[in-house]
């Protein structure tokens, strides 16, 4: 079992865990933006509580903890790969295109994680009733959370580009 002690084994293992957690996160993000939000106005008013009280809290649980796990596993992966600090500096000075690319992907992912935990979740807590709020405050919270969620949907496209491009850019190290 010597191979289990080698970074060579753990690097792809943590990459796989990071991607699985990322699917949990971005899968729910896209569910909210592609399915739930556009469908809500079409649902009869008396049926909407089924979504808000039952589906939404469950989806938000997997969504926010998927985001947390993706970030933590991503930082571990970057550390195992030996480029954590260089990537956080956007690869400046490394002359390594892969580190430039993963650095941009990491920062976009960090911004998205911040949006989840510090904008979307505090506002959604008002929507699902975990935080007490007046009906006006609930409407404002729903709008703010929705806009931050849309920003994350927009950022998920360049984020995934940079993340996937980095380890597959074979010419990047000599670019």
């Amino acid at each position: 079992m010597d191979f289990l002690a080698q970074a060579d084994f753990w690097r792809p293992f943590f990459r796989w865990l990071h991607v699985v957690a990322g699917i949990m996160w971005i899968g729910h993000l896209w569910y909210f933006n592609f399915t739930q939000t556009p469908t809500m106005p079409k649902i009869p008013t008396e049926l909407r509580p089924a979504v808000v009280r039952y589906i939404l809290p469950e989806a938000l649980f997997w969504f926010r903890w998927g985001a947390m796990l993706t970030l933590i596993l991503g930082l571990i992966l970057a550390w195992l790969n030996g480029y954590l600090l260089d990537a956080l500096k956007l690869g400046i000075g490394t002359h390594n295109g892969r580190i430039v690319a993963i650095g941009w992907g990491m920062w976009l992912g960090i911004i998205m994680w911040f949006n989840v935990w510090f904008i979307i979740w505090p506002n959604q807590k008002k929507v699902i009733g975990l935080t007490s709020a007046t009906p006006d405050e609930v409407n404002a919270a729903r709008r703010t959370a929705g806009l931050a969620s849309r920003v994350n949907t927009m950022l998920s496209i360049p984020m995934s580009y940079a993340m996937i491009f980095a380890p597959h850019w074979y010419g990047g190290m000599t670019a």
Binding site: R150, L155, I157
Partner: peptide, 30 residues
């Protein structure tokens, strides 16, 4: 900005436009 974000498809197109810009920036910085 808010009207763009209220439209799902405009948001997605904006994401792809940002991706093209990012690809150029990454290539230039590499």
């Amino acid at each position: 900005m808010e009207s763009l974000l209220n439209n799902l498809w405009a948001t997605i197109i904006a994401g792809f436009v940002l991706t093209v810009i990012l690809a150029i920036v990454i290539r230039a910085m590499a």
